[in-house]
Amino acid sequence: MNQAIPQLITAALVGAMSPVATMATIAVLSTGRRPLIDALCLLLGWTIVLVVLAGAIRALLPEHGSAVSEQTRAVFNVFVGVLLLSFGLRQVIGARHPLAHVVEGREELRQRPPGWMNAFDKLTPLKAVAIGAVLLLVSPADLAVYMSALQGVSGNAFSAGTRLLLVVLLVLAIDLCILIPLGIYLAMGERAHGILLRLRSWLIDNNRRATAWVLLVFGLFSLGSGISALV
């Protein structure tokens, strides 16, 4: 239980800071034909995937107390830790490498909005749901952190009610990456457009620095907990 709570908190922070989902929401609210409806559909697709993954983890992992299940969770934590550390180190070192412009493009090109954001000009509610579902699946760091937190909850001695409450809170926290720009759009009126554009610009410029430390910290924690369980 002591390890599960830090996992949940860190997963909630990583998910709430997801730049891909936040920029997608801002693009929908800024260029969509039905901004509010399309953003809600985006949120629906994103949340559906979170709920389905939570159900899958619960169904696939054995009950707490099984030696096999504990070893599986430990190996999974090691895998997630290595994966997140690789993503974090890439964020920290990638821009400083002399060949970074060959792999990732030049700085002035990387600071432009991603090309996929142009697709929101002709968005429909059904497409918005589909895009929301895909966003998490194409964000490997967010996906790995979320899956690790889910198996942490499943692997500890929580009651069924407590486990359900923790998963609901985790899903709501990860939904913040969409709920925050949506709340700005609803609460700020005419000023929302300027605020959202500045937020998008900040994410484009600082995405690397804003997420690297979170990935490194959670990667070290996940790797350490997995190794300690295996030893």
Rank of each mutant, 00 (worst) to 15 (best):
F76K: 01
L223W: 08
L182K: 02
Q3W: 07
L220W: 08
A39Q: 13
V231Y: 05
L164N: 14
H97C: 05
H193T: 10
F87A: 15
P19H: 07
N2L: 08
E70N: 11
P19K: 04
Q7I: 02
H101S: 02
M117P: 00
V167W: 07
I204D: 06
D38P: 10
I37W: 08
L197S: 09
I180K: 03
V214I: 13
L164R: 15
H97A: 14
L53W: 09
A119F: 04
V153E: 08
A141P: 00
E63I: 15
I9W: 03
A54Y: 02
G161D: 11
T10I: 07
L29V: 12
T31L: 05
A16N: 02
L172T: 01
Q151I: 08
V145E: 09
R112C: 03
I174W: 00
L196W: 03
G132H: 02
P181C: 06
V92F: 13
G32N: 08
T47N: 03
A56R: 14
L176K: 09
I5N: 04
S154D: 08
L165V: 10
H101I: 03
F120Q: 01
A39D: 10
L220P: 00
A74H: 03
P62T: 12
A119G: 08
A67T: 09
G115A: 08
V14M: 03
S66C: 08
G55M: 14
S148T: 07
S30N: 12
T22I: 13
F221A: 13
A157C: 10
V231E: 03
V214L: 13
G105D: 01
G183E: 06
G189T: 13
Y185Q: 11
P35G: 12
